[in-house]
């Protein structure tokens, strides 16, 4: 399977980050991870990366409920950034609230809404979809 250069994880849950890293590493999908623990850190980090002329990760997995700046607020800020490269963004949440589902549909940036728990099958499918595009 073709590798993904870099995955950006925006989540405040260390267990989830640990697990995603492990699954991707084990399936040899990706080795490079950028981790932010809330939306604000992510916006700051991604802006700096862009400013220094480096590539930002091609896949972003974004949690909804986070301290300081949540997933929705991140999306609003992220939409304002000028990024030439195609970025694929998945929303990942434990929420089964239909309100969140509906809201996710309104954002063009969101490729899909994934309900936790994440399984290795789901993650590998995401990687495959990304590569086939």
């Amino acid at each position: 399977m073709k590798q993904i250069n870099s995955v950006c994880l925006i989540d405040d849950d260390p267990i989830l980050i640990f697990a995603i890293k492990m699954i991707f590493k084990a399936s040899k999908v990706c080795k490079n991870f950028t981790v932010y623990n809330n939306g604000e850190d992510a916006i700051d980090g991604l802006s700096q990366t862009l400013a220094s002329g480096k590539d930002i990760p091609e896949l972003i997995l974004l949690d909804i409920n986070m301290p300081i700046m949540d997933g929705w607020q991140f999306l609003d800020e992220f939409a304002k950034m000028t990024i030439s490269k195609k970025i694929t963004l998945y929303m990942v949440s434990s929420s089964v609230d239909p309100v969140d589902f509906m809201k996710a549909k309104e954002y063009e940036l969101i490729k899909d809404f994934i309900v936790k728990p994440l399984t290795s099958d789901t993650l590998i499918k995401i990687a495959e979809d990304l590569n086939s595009n």
Binding site: D13, I15, A19, N65, S94, V96, K116, P117, L118, S120
Partner: peptide, 16 residues
Amino acid sequence: HNLRSHSGNLEMLLEL
């Protein structure tokens, strides 16, 4: 919601 994140993590960790 909070319970779900924890049980989700547990499920995920067990699978891993």
